[in-house]
Amino acid sequence: MAKQIVNEMATNLTLDSNSASQALKELTREVKNSSAEAKILENQYKASGDAVSSSKAKYEGLQSTLEAQKTKIEALKSGLDNVNTSTKKGQDLQQYLNNELAKAERQYASYNGCSEVNKLDYFYSVT
């Protein structure tokens, strides 16, 4: 399923900057939704006083967010591979996708750092 999404997004990313922008918004929405769901679940457990489940929900939510961000990065890379740079429009699209890829990779690194911290918190709370 994720591979199908990546292929579809990659196709949209190579059409033009408007299609690329829409595809990126959809991918970004998926990342944000994943993160928001994890925060809601974490807060529900926290409110009920279940610190271990709260920590687990946060850790698992970050793993889900990392996967969504990874899908976004794969789509951007695939889109970049298929851009026709022989035209000015294609060169502009390539620059746009390169900038978006850099942002996505920075965000992935940030999520990954948070995930490592939360992994330790979760495993510490279980023991």
Rank of each mutant, 00 (worst) to 15 (best):
M1Y: 01
M1Q: 08
M1L: 10
A2K: 03
A2F: 09
A2G: 07
A2S: 05
K3G: 08
Q4S: 01
Q4W: 12
I5L: 10
I5S: 08
I5F: 07
I5E: 15
V6L: 03
V6S: 01
N7H: 01
N7S: 08
E8V: 02
E8F: 06
M9W: 05
M9K: 08
T11H: 09
T11M: 05
T11N: 13
T11Y: 10
N12G: 06
L13Q: 03
L13P: 00
T14D: 10
T14L: 11
D16L: 04
D16R: 01
D16S: 04
N18C: 03
N18A: 11
N18H: 12
S19I: 06
A20C: 04
A20F: 08
A20I: 00
S21R: 05
A23H: 01
A23D: 01
L24E: 03
T28P: 07
T28Q: 15
R29P: 03
R29M: 05
E30I: 03
V31I: 11
V31C: 11
N33I: 14
N33K: 14
S34Q: 15
S34Y: 02
A36V: 13
A36T: 13
A36C: 08
E37P: 00
K39F: 15
L41Q: 15
L41V: 12
L41G: 12
E42L: 00
E42W: 01
E42K: 02
E42F: 06
Q44Y: 02
Q44C: 00
Q44F: 04
Y45G: 02
K46S: 01
K46L: 04
A47W: 00
A51I: 09
A51P: 02
V52I: 15
S53R: 12
S53H: 07
S55F: 02
S55W: 03
S55T: 05
S55N: 14
K56P: 01
K56N: 12
A57Q: 02
A57K: 00
A57R: 02
Y59Q: 09
Y59H: 05
E60D: 13
E60C: 08
G61M: 07
S64D: 14
T65L: 11
Q69T: 12
Q69I: 10
K70E: 15
T71F: 15
K72M: 12
K72F: 02
I73R: 05
I73G: 07
I73Y: 06
E74A: 11
E74I: 02
A75S: 14
A75H: 07
A75Q: 06
K77L: 09
S78E: 14
S78N: 15
G79E: 06
G79C: 02
G79W: 12
G79Y: 05
L80V: 03
D81M: 06
D81Q: 09
N84E: 11
T85Y: 06
T85F: 09
T87W: 07
K88L: 15
K88N: 14
K89L: 04
Q91M: 10
D92I: 04
D92H: 13
N98G: 12
N98L: 12
N99R: 11
L101V: 05
A102Q: 11
K103D: 13
K103Q: 05
A104V: 08
E105G: 01
R106T: 11
Q107D: 13
Q107V: 06
Q107Y: 10
S110L: 09
N112F: 15
S115G: 13
E116C: 02
E116G: 09
E116D: 14
K119D: 09
L120K: 14
D121T: 13
F123L: 12
S125A: 14
S125K: 10
S125E: 14
V126P: 07
T127W: 08
